[in-house]
Each structure stands twice: as C-alpha cells, then as structure tokens.
C-alpha cells in the first residue's frame, strides 16, 4: 500500500485541515456525526488527490515568516487595486477614450510556480496591465496606455517577487 506511506507528513496535514475547516463552515449545525463525516471525507479527498496537491517546496506560505510577508504584500496590493480602478474609471468615463493598447514583453525568470501565479494575478490587478501569456523566460503583457507600460518597469511587485525568489 504505497498510498498510505506518508499519511502523517506535513504535506498531507495542511490540505486536510483546510478541507476540514471548509466543511465545518458549510455545515449548518456542528455535531459529533458531522465532524466525523467531515474528517472521513477530507481524508479520502486528500488521499485520492495526493499527486495533484502541491509539493512542499512549492508553497512558501507554509513558513510563518513568509506568511507575514505575504500579508504585508496583500495590504500594498489592495491600495494598488483601488488606484487601478480609479484609473480605469477615468479612462472609461472620458468621452474621448484616451487609450493606446499594445503588447509588451517583460523578461522575468521565475522558477517557482506559486510565484508565477502571484506575479501574474498581481499584474492583472494593478493599473492598466493584463497578463496574456507566460513563456519560458518572459511574461507577455497587454498594456492599456503608454504610461502603464512604462510603470511596469521596476514596480514594487517585481521587487517583492525577486526578493521572494532569492530567499528560497
């Protein structure tokens, strides 16, 4: 039974706890039976989808220091999202529609899949840029205006991601 080899490892425990807490949130009233059924179902899901779940080194949030770092990043990101929305509102509500849409290529070497996800989604949420494609060594980004394309260079997301990548 190769399947049950590392049932107690940390890699299995964290998805299990996440699934169990999700079950407990969705359960209307918490009783002993519902908790037992939730544990059985979560364990089955974790065992069955073992090779779909992440490898341990792919998730940097597991360490506490990284988690705090992440919270700070999300705080800065929320401010950026507000700025992005006000930018879009200005452009869309302007009668002359001042846009210069074009594609740019941002060279970026990221090995970690999780960091790629964070970078791509953050670029999409910040002003005037949208991640289109990820190639081996670059991100292809669609910029709405020329200013947005210039602001991509040396942005705070890029600095943060490179710092994260170096630490590992």
């Amino acid at each position: 039974m190769r399947m049950y080899k590392n049932i107690t490892s940390k890699k299995m425990a964290i998805p299990f706890l996440l699934l169990l807490s999700f079950w407990l949130v969705l359960t209307p009233n918490i009783t002993v039976e519902s908790i037992i059924i939730g544990m059985i179902v979560s364990a089955l899901v974790v065992l069955y989808s073992q090779n779909l779940l992440f490898e341990k080194q792919e998730i940097p949030i597991y360490k506490m220091a990284n988690f705090i770092n992440m919270i700070k990043f999300i705080g800065v990101l929320i401010v950026e999202v507000f700025k992005a929305n006000i930018d879009v509102a200005k452009i869309v509500l302007n009668p002359s529609l001042p846009i210069q849409p074009h594609f740019i290529k941002v060279p970026m070497m990221l090995k970690n899949d999780f960091n790629k996800v964070i970078y791509g989604n953050s670029v999409t949420l910040t002003p005037g840029t949208l991640t289109v494609d990820i190639t081996e060594d670059a991100f292809i980004i669609h910029a709405l205006t020329n200013d947005a394309a210039e602001a991509m260079e040396n942005s705070f997301i890029e600095q943060w991601i490179i710092k994260q990548e170096d630490e590992q």
Partner: peptide
C-alpha cells in the same frame, strides 16, 4: 481592452 475594464 474590454478585459481590462471588467477584471479590475
């Protein structure tokens, strides 16, 4: 460009 507006 439509995607820019809708996503954010």
């Amino acid at each position: 460009t439509r995607m820019h507006a809708t996503t954010k």
